[in-house]
């Protein structure tokens, strides 16, 4: 940080004379120490990936999952203070449940991001609380099919006023990132945590805005990007945690799930290979992307 707070950093909800809230900025610092987390919005789904730093050899391998599910089709991954991330998820689940109890349908990813943005922002307003020490990436799939309300038993009249627009498309993949200030944007690719700069540079190369990249490619890219982002802190061990959510026709049938072990290991193998010193022949094979059978 370029300047110190000179007294304006002691309390939340107090601006400095040049219009900054130092507590929020310090929260961002906490995030920048966390393991890298990324999200990729592919054409047929969303991939979330996390560089889970292993701080003890006594921890069981592949246990202690960090990417959480909210409702059925949204995933949340965060970088920063772990307990804050847990609380964020818990609140997101409450919001999703409340939405369901009112509207009898799953919460749209955008609405969840909006509500969580509002919630996180509230923690910048009061001197009795501190801001969230996490930046959370929220990825989900809003159903493209016409959903009935929960508990619906029939289809209703076949003819008459329905107010439906012919050929209207709805749903799709959504990705948001919510920062300690409560700021959130929708992204094609999002990265946070220690390796975010390297990860962002890699994400930009993927031209995600074109909407060309498939979910399986996304999984492989996500694994590779986490490995690239880990280069700077190579001395530390880490586990790659990856989840995805696809369309109803896709591999997860609209649910947020862990990426199957076989596919994840394949993606890791390719990621490690791509980091090895240049070898023309090898490189060509990786680029060709030998597809996993599903």
């Amino acid at each position: 940080m370029t300047s110190i707070g000179t007294g304006y950093d002691l309390s939340n909800s107090v601006f400095s004379p040049d219009g900054r809230n130092f507590q929020v900025e310090y929260a961002v610092k906490a995030v920048e120490n966390g393991g890298t987390a990324i999200g990729i919005r592919c054409k047929d789904g969303v991939v979330l990936a996390l560089e889970k730093l292993i701080h003890s050899r006594l921890l069981k391998k592949d246990a202690n999952k960090r990417i959480a599910t909210v409702d059925r089709k949204v995933g949340v991954v965060s970088a920063g203070l772990l307990p804050d991330g847990r609380h964020f998820v818990s609140r997101a689940r409450d919001e999703a449940a409340q939405w369901r109890s009112i509207y009898k349908s799953p919460i749209p990813t955008s609405s969840l991001a909006d509500r969580m943005g509002g919630y996180v922002q509230a923690y910048t307003l009061y001197s009795s609380v501190r801001p969230f020490g996490v930046t959370a990436i929220v990825g989900g799939w809003d159903s493209e099919a016409e959903l009935g309300v929960d508990g619906q038993v029939g289809s209703g009249p076949k003819v008459g006023a329905g107010g439906k627009r012919e050929g209207a498309k709805s749903g799709g993949p959504y990705l948001y990132m919510i920062e300690p200030s409560g700021l959130y944007w929708g992204y094609y690719g999002a990265a946070t945590g220690k390796g975010r700069q390297a990860a962002k540079a890699e994400l930009e190369k993927l031209n995600l805005a074109d909407g060309e990249i498939s979910l399986e490619q996304g999984v492989k890219e996500a694994a590779r990007i986490i490995y690239v982002a880990h280069e700077d802190s190579k001395d530390k061990e880490f586990e790659l945690e990856m989840t995805w959510v696809s369309s109803l026709e896709g591999p997860t049938k609209g649910h947020h799930q862990e990426v199957p072990k076989a596919l994840r290991e394949e993606a890791e193998r390719l990621a490690k290979k791509s980091l090895e010193p240049e070898d023309e022949e090898e490189e060509a094979r990786v680029e060709g992307g030998d597809r996993m059978e599903e």
């Binding site: 409702d71 059925r72 449940a97 369901r100 009898k104 929960d150 508990g151 619906q152 038993v153």
Partner: peptide, 13 residues
């Protein structure tokens, strides 16, 4: 029945 259906979907989530 609809009430139970919703109860069960909450349970399953």
């Amino acid at each position: 029945m609809q009430h139970l259906d919703r109860l069960l979907s909450t349970l399953s989530i």
